[in-house]
Design a protein around this nucleic acid. Structure first.
Lengths: 159, 159
DNA sequence: TATTGTTATACTCTATAACTATA
DNA sequence: TATAGTTATAGAGTATAACAATA
């Protein structure tokens, strides 16, 4: 596990964000697991329901690599929640079509996700909750909008 | 990368926490890298400076595994920032002693960490900042205090 | 030439297992 | 028997490389 938590002058925002994010994620993972979904499967399912989308489009929306998307769609197909269909306009692309069962599961998983979020937010006084959300939005759109690029080591070619 | 970010009824707390936490971590990693430290090295250095501590004690404070601590202390020794010294009371244990250079680096790294946090917090209006911190503290001590245990697959014995 | 989806796999990270030396 | 530290490595997760089909 990660960490960084001593006493110091400046409030330890890193600790607050890492810790709350981590614990919330464990809650979400456990809650979605009860209906056989991962967070990624839920994310793809919901976006695929909104309109006809290809794997690449869904990958971008969920901020995943296209190879990760392959695995996620495999899982959705295996669970009978979605299907790959040829695009009518681009024969390279696959539209991810949500099945009837998938639609039902997506509604249920959305309730689960909302429930986990609601439980956390309702543990705060109403005014604190309001301001917390406003501040988070401001950070996401402002000072914490863009990750600092890390120099990534080039990989040895496949032998 | 992780993600989950559609439009929905309940505010997407997962997205806010994951995203802000991630971006802040990239800022911190980049800033500390300029003086050759990782976040873990900084964390161990600071705690080791406070008082005489063994590897196990430092591991618990930083919420790391003892095997991760071995690697971290190796890095600190290699950089000449800390040394392993035998404990005078327990011959199994090693006290992590910070060198003079280590002390200087720790002060510098603490300034860096504080600076990164300050920059983020100062991007918020004062009243929002206050309430954000209060709310985060409330979550860390309350509804988001304890990770949900994930059932972890038993590992095959070392062959 | 560029892009979609796919397979194979290199790499990183983390923590379990096993071990040595002490307690 | 239990604990501190160590080594080796299993396993999960992620993303790069290479490729086939198509644009």
């Amino acid at each position: 596990m990660t960490a960084m938590a001593p006493s110091r002058a400046e409030p330890d925002l890193s600790y607050f964000l890492d810790r709350t994010g981590h614990v919330l994620r464990t809650q979400m993972t456990a809650a979605l697991a009860e209906i056989g979904l991962t967070a990624r499967m839920h994310c793809v399912l919901v976006h695929a329901l909104e309109e006809e989308r290809t794997q690449i489009q869904l990958a971008e929306l969920g901020d995943m690599d296209k190879t990760t998307m392959v695995v996620t769609v495999d899982a959705l197909e295996k669970a009978g929640l979605a299907e790959r269909r040829p695009s009518s306009t681009d024969r390279r692309a696959r539209i991810i079509a949500v099945t009837e069962k998938g639609r039902e599961v997506a509604h249920r998983s959305q309730e689960i996700v909302d429930g986990v979020h609601r439980a956390a937010l309702e543990s705060l006084p109403g005014d604190e909750r309001e301001v917390l959300l406003r501040a988070m939005r401001r950070l996401v759109e402002g000072h914490l909008s863009t990750p600092v690029e890390a120099p990534q080591a080039p990989r040895r070619p496949r032998q």
